[in-house]
Design a binder for these strands. Structure first.
Lengths: 111, 111
DNA sequence: GCAATAGTTAAGTAAATGCTTCAGTTTTGA
DNA sequence: TCAAAACTGAAGCATTTACTTAACTATTGC
């Protein structure tokens, strides 16, 4: 489920920018409005909205508008997809090292 | 250790491309030469070398040249840095949900 | 030695990114 | 009612990305 390559592209791409990671960090401590997200960042509000759109397109963030304020939240399941991909690679790598270890142990026995 | 923002930029940026992820997948199953990495990819060898340079700059891949063939390997510790950042966010998120749960439980008691 | 192999480097290009400013649109509070 | 607050969207611009082709440099096997 959800290892659509294009989805992972969007996800990793979204996380590749320090401003966007900072926004995700802020949101992992609780929901925030666009202005609140913008406050610590040295760029225009417009730029922040553009980053926010990237995050939303990647599925990492969900937003909802009530009145004139848009409230943003993390979508924790989405982060899981990136985590999952990385874990798969690590697992494959470790399985391989285990097999290599076994092989070397066997070879040693045979001396 | 190693949550230099610039390093994470390079890492996530490197993982944001499907060709590069495919190269990492291949390498997580064992070392490979540049041509072997290129073989399943529909692009010139030159393009593959350029992707490889991105991966190497990100610290995800280490290469070594012997004679005329360059052998590439995954650097498993590097993947750990990306994983760590994601885990931190998930933890912060979960801690927050726990606190929220506690708060709601308390509030309920007080009715 | 010399052609094939394996990779490297440079230059060029089309598209995508990360901003900016400016001109809107809704909401809201006094 | 009307100005301030909180965005939103479009246009423009400099930079970076993801390629390409073409020319080049080592290595290796015969």
């Amino acid at each position: 489920m959800l290892h659509d390559p294009a989805q992972l592209d969007l996800m990793f791409q979204a996380l590749a920018d320090p401003a966007r990671r900072q926004m995700v960090e802020r949101l992992s401590r609780g929901p925030a409005s666009v202005s609140q997200l913008a406050e610590p960042l040295a760029m225009s509000l417009s730029a922040v909205v553009q980053h926010l759109n990237v995050l939303e397109a990647s599925g990492l963030v969900r937003t909802e508008k009530l009145g004139r304020v848009r409230t943003c939240q993390i979508e924790p399941k989405a982060l899981g997809a990136a985590e999952h991909w990385i874990n798969e690679r690590r697992l494959a790598w470790e399985r391989r090292l285990d097999r290599l270890g076994d092989f070397l142990a066997e070879t040693k026995d045979e001396t």
